[in-house]
């Protein structure tokens, strides 16, 4: 077998003048692909209260609580979303029948206070059962 010493020398030396591969992230914008799965965003007005997202979540990141009926016949719901438990797998958005969950590209979620991870919202909606369907593309 051929043996050389310092066969990486030319490559390393060339890199002295080459452009850095580093993205200066906090000061430069980071390119993310359009499919990037970040923090969830909810459109509560579209929700039909089927709770499929809660059922399918592998890590209990979503809690949807039934809070009784309102006067106009709608049901009041309380949605609690735990960012710190979320796996960002997107299964909830896929399972959702009313497309009320989408994945944003937000990834800067670090916090030093654990309570800030819990995102709560209350809304009321009519419960409409709908068949599950298979979606093509995320």
């Amino acid at each position: 077998m051929v043996r050389t010493i310092g066969s990486m020398f030319p490559e390393a030396f060339r890199h002295l003048w080459k452009k850095r591969a580093t993205v200066l992230y906090p000061f430069e914008k980071l390119e993310l692909t359009y499919r990037y799965r970040g923090k969830l965003e909810f459109f509560d007005e579209r929700c039909k209260g089927c709770k499929v997202c809660e059922e399918d979540c592998p890590s209990f990141a979503m809690e949807i609580k039934d809070e009784g009926k309102e006067q106009d016949g709608k049901t009041k719901f309380r949605r609690i979303y735990h960012t710190d438990r979320c796996l960002f797998c997107g299964q909830c958005a896929e399972s959702c029948m009313s497309e009320s969950i989408i994945l944003t590209k937000e990834f800067e979620l670090a916090e030093s206070d654990k309570e800030k991870f819990t995102i709560e919202s209350t809304y009321s909606t009519e419960i409409i059962a709908k068949e599950r369907e298979v979606k093509e593309d995320g």
Binding site: A12, F13, H15, L16, K18, R20, A21, T22, L24
Partner: peptide
Amino acid sequence: KLYARMQNRV
């Protein structure tokens, strides 16, 4: 710094 530059870093 040289070490980093040769490794294509900052």
